[in-house]
Amino acid sequence: KTVKFDGLQFDFDNPEKALKFALEVAKQKGAEVHIHGDEIKIE
């Protein structure tokens, strides 16, 4: 899975870790997590 935000991109082999990371970043930024297939966007 790939996590994208602020023009940055982070690749994870483990989908659970990717989602956990995305949710943590979103919480800190006050943003929402959007999942599109293998891509997780924080907006």
Score class of each variant (00 low, 15 high):
K1W: 15
K1D: 02
K1S: 11
K1Q: 09
K1P: 09
K1T: 14
T2A: 05
T2H: 06
V3D: 00
V3R: 01
V3G: 02
V3H: 03
K4C: 15
K4L: 13
K4V: 12
F5Y: 10
F5S: 00
D6T: 04
D6F: 11
D6N: 11
G7F: 06
G7R: 07
G7P: 04
G7S: 06
L8C: 15
L8P: 00
L8M: 12
L8S: 05
Q9I: 13
Q9L: 09
Q9G: 04
Q9E: 10
Q9K: 11
Q9Y: 07
Q9V: 13
Q9A: 10
Q9P: 03
Q9H: 08
Q9F: 08
F10Q: 03
F10G: 03
F10D: 01
F10P: 00
F10T: 00
F10K: 01
D11G: 07
D11T: 14
D11M: 13
D11W: 15
D11C: 15
F12C: 11
F12S: 02
F12K: 02
F12Y: 01
F12N: 00
F12I: 03
F12Q: 01
F12V: 01
F12D: 02
D13E: 10
D13F: 05
D13A: 08
D13C: 14
D13S: 08
D13N: 06
N14S: 13
N14P: 00
N14A: 06
N14Q: 05
N14Y: 03
P15E: 12
P15I: 14
P15K: 06
P15M: 14
E16H: 09
E16V: 10
E16W: 13
E16K: 07
E16R: 09
E16G: 06
E16S: 08
E16P: 00
K17L: 14
K17G: 09
K17E: 15
K17R: 10
K17N: 11
K17C: 15
K17V: 12
A18D: 00
A18M: 03
A18C: 12
A18V: 00
L19N: 00
L19Q: 02
L19H: 01
L19M: 12
K20W: 10
K20C: 15
K20I: 10
K20R: 11
K20E: 12
K20N: 07
F21N: 02
F21K: 00
F21D: 04
F21G: 03
F21R: 00
F21S: 03
A22Y: 00
A22R: 00
A22L: 05
A22C: 13
A22F: 04
A22Q: 01
A22V: 01
A22I: 03
L23N: 06
L23P: 01
L23F: 11
L23M: 12
E24G: 05
E24C: 15
V25M: 12
A26F: 04
K27L: 11
K27V: 08
Q28W: 13
Q28C: 15
Q28T: 08
Q28G: 06
K29Q: 10
K29W: 15
K29A: 11
K29T: 13
K29M: 14
G30Y: 06
G30C: 15
G30P: 02
G30D: 06
A31P: 01
A31H: 08
A31G: 12
A31I: 07
E32G: 09
E32T: 14
E32H: 14
E32A: 13
E32V: 14
E32K: 14
V33G: 02
V33A: 04
V33L: 11
H34A: 08
H34E: 06
H34V: 13
H34M: 09
I35Y: 07
I35M: 09
I35C: 15
H36Q: 11
H36R: 10
H36G: 06
H36L: 11
H36C: 15
G37H: 06
G37L: 07
G37D: 08
G37A: 07
G37T: 05
D38R: 09
D38V: 08
D38M: 10
D38Q: 09
D38F: 10
D38T: 11
D38C: 15
E39P: 02
E39D: 07
E39L: 12
E39H: 08
E39K: 04
E39G: 03
E39T: 12
I40V: 04
I40H: 03
I40P: 00
I40W: 04
I40T: 03
K41M: 14
K41T: 14
K41E: 09
K41Q: 11
K41G: 04
K41H: 15
I42Y: 02
I42R: 02
I42D: 03
E43L: 13
E43P: 05
E43N: 08
E43V: 14
E43Y: 14
